[in-house]
Simulated assay, not measured.
Amino acid sequence: MSVHSSSASRDVLPLLSPMHAVIGPLPPPETEAEYAYETLWNGARVLVHLPGDGTVCLLSATGLDVTAQYPEFRSLASALPVLEAVLDAEIVALDGRGRPSVERLQQRMSLRHPDAVAHATRDLPVQLTIFDILYLGEPTVQLPYTSRRDLLDDLNLAGPGVAVPAAWPALASEAFEQAVREGFDGVVAKRLTSPYLPGRRSRDWIKIKQGDAEA
């Protein structure tokens, strides 16, 4: 299975930029049911291009092709052998307790030489956390968050080194407290009706970190 170059992927799939969240407090009780709550991973953002030909391309938030730095994700292409897709994800390095480690991720991101990268797949493993879908045979960015999550869940992409995180409905404070208990920095509140806005920072997504949960 080969690695697809970014230029080749662009001939098949739309070239999009990630949507970004604003930083803010948890939604108040009167509006909390308008959102779903996902864990804040603090990883390296990537858009995953799957042209449907057995190849995969990872593009960073700035559009750089970082596929060769993470060869363990090549097998993801076999999960969607025919469908063309663009997925929004974060690359995360976990510590011994299964919690995201910025330090370990930075070590992995600094590697470029193929031999160093090959060794790192064993010594500094990373996980691909997929949380949105921008294209699946046709654009999906105009669909509401709930519909995109349903499409993503139906793909059954979870496997070794790949995860689709849970999204808590309605219970803002409970979701935040559980995420913090599990060692994460907080949650992202995503409005259930919101479309995906490529390249934009929108209040439809609110990043809530420890210390920012209260208005």
Rank of each mutant, 00 (worst) to 15 (best):
A93Q: 05
A77S: 14
P71D: 03
M109I: 02
L94H: 04
A116W: 00
R99N: 09
G96S: 13
T62D: 12
Q69S: 10
L87R: 04
R99I: 13
Q106K: 14
R74E: 10
G52K: 00
S110G: 15
A79M: 15
G96Q: 09
H113N: 13
F73W: 01
L80V: 07
D115C: 08
V82H: 13
P81L: 13
D115E: 12
D65K: 03
L105C: 07
V48P: 06
L80D: 05
P114T: 11
R99E: 13
T62L: 11
A61Q: 14
L105A: 10
V46S: 06
V86C: 10
L50E: 08
P81D: 13
S101C: 13
G98P: 08
R108W: 04
F73K: 03
A79V: 15
Q69W: 03
I91S: 01
A89G: 07
A79I: 09
E72T: 01
S60C: 13
M109N: 01
Q107E: 15
Q106C: 13
V117W: 01
Q69T: 02
V66G: 01
V86S: 13
L58Y: 00
D88Q: 08
F73M: 11
L94I: 02
M109D: 06
V48I: 07
T62Y: 00
G54M: 04
A79H: 14
T62S: 08
H113F: 06
V102T: 12
L47P: 13
V48E: 03
L58K: 01
D95P: 14
A118Y: 03
D53G: 08
E84M: 15
C57N: 05
C57P: 00
G52H: 01
L111K: 02
V86Q: 05
T55F: 03
H113Y: 07
A93P: 01
D65G: 04
A85S: 14
L111F: 06
A61V: 06
D88K: 08
H49A: 14
L76G: 04
L94S: 07
V82Q: 06
S75Y: 03
T67W: 03
P114W: 09
L83M: 15
H49C: 10
V66E: 10
